[in-house]
Write a protein that binds this DNA or RNA. Structure first.
Lengths: 107, 107
DNA sequence: CGTGTAAGGAATTCTGACACG
DNA sequence: CGTGTAAGGAATTCTGACACG
């Protein structure tokens, strides 16, 4: 009923709740931000706000950390994945434009 | 990828954020709880926690209040809607059981 | 009835730093 | 490197109450 809610992306969760949800300490969560693994928004007075997507991301990070992966490695993997994703999106966008101009063809 | 996230129902938002999201004062939000229009969970130390569904509910309440509808009326409407919904669910549940026993029939 | 506000206390969050390793 | 902790301050939240209407 609302306009594309996308609750998953909405940054509304405080660090205390994120800590409960992930089992990570607030210290850890702030540190991962320092290492650019996570990007909360800030409320007007400076409080960090996280989304459910961030919570999932933190859980992934926690799992990798348990396996001994360093934050630097995790960041590199993230950047690689992101580049891959952008490449895919550019490709899909291009395909969409071609279809728009020349019509949809089967196969 | 997670197990039926249902982010919409998860009670993780503090009253301050709900206030920003809805435009209602914290006083109003607490009052609507007192009038049994909204049911936040409580964190271990007593802080209220709301879901996105609660936020939507509050926006509906705010709209009705602007139209001059009293909280008592809003509550009655809610109870009526809930009874209707339960009736529907019982009916659907029953239908499901019948189908499970006698198979799905077309039309 | 519905909402604002001041009151006092308790819990939250923030930053920068020291510690250990 | 990754995380814990004590420190001090600022912002948040809570409850019960008085106010107005």
């Amino acid at each position: 009923m609302a306009d594309i809610p996308s609750y998953k992306q909405r940054k509304v969760i405080t660090i205390g709740v994120v800590s409960e949800l992930t089992g990570l300490s607030e210290r850890q969560i702030r540190y991962y931000e320092e290492r650019k693994l996570i990007f909360p928004e800030r409320a007007p007075k400076g409080n960090r706000k996280y989304s459910f997507a961030d919570v999932e991301q933190l859980i992934d990070i926690a799992n990798k950390r348990e396996e001994g992966v360093q934050t630097y490695e995790i960041r590199q993997d993230m950047l690689r994945a992101e580049r891959k994703k952008e490449k895919r999106m550019r490709r899909d966008l291009l395909r969409g434009e071609i279809n728009a101009r020349f019509g949809i063809q089967k196969e």
